[in-house]
């Protein structure tokens, strides 16, 4: 039983974080909060990838004669670039939030819906 938990704990937490992020994006009305939720979602995917790359007893993939076992470098590469692209898209989302606030005077989804319904 403990074995099963230890073998899957990383994946379960990744899924838990993903669902918390998902819920924040879907159920919260504030646009900044939604973007924070999106970041949580994103990090959970990073965690899933990096967990799959880990090899027990391995070390970071920087070659040295003293080590034989290394973790898988490929997911590291994918996630490294994804993090930087993630901040670029977050910046873009925040810029949109700033413009929405300037045009509508609010960043709450309910109020935005009401205002769009009136016009």
């Amino acid at each position: 039983m403990l074995q099963v938990v230890l073998e899957h704990y990383n994946y379960w937490i990744a899924i838990l974080l993903m669902m918390v992020g998902f819920y924040t994006v879907v159920a919260r009305g504030n646009l900044v909060k939604k973007l924070v939720g999106l970041n949580i979602f994103q990090t959970s995917v990073f965690l899933l990838y990096i967990s799959m790359a880990k090899v027990t007893g391995g070390t970071a993939p920087i070659l040295d004669d003293r080590f034989q076992v290394y973790s898988n470098p490929l997911p590291h590469v994918l996630i490294l670039t994804a993090i930087v692209v993630g901040v670029a898209t977050t910046a873009l989302g925040l810029a949109l939030v700033v413009r929405i606030r300037e045009s509508y005077g609010t960043i709450e989804e309910d109020e935005l819906d009401l205002m769009d319904g009136e016009t």
């Binding site: 790359a53 880990k54 391995g58 970071a60 993939p61 590291h76 993090i83």
Partner: peptide, 10 residues
Amino acid sequence: LDAVDVAFTE
């Protein structure tokens, strides 16, 4: 999890 480059970026 041995991903030092990723940790640095994050």
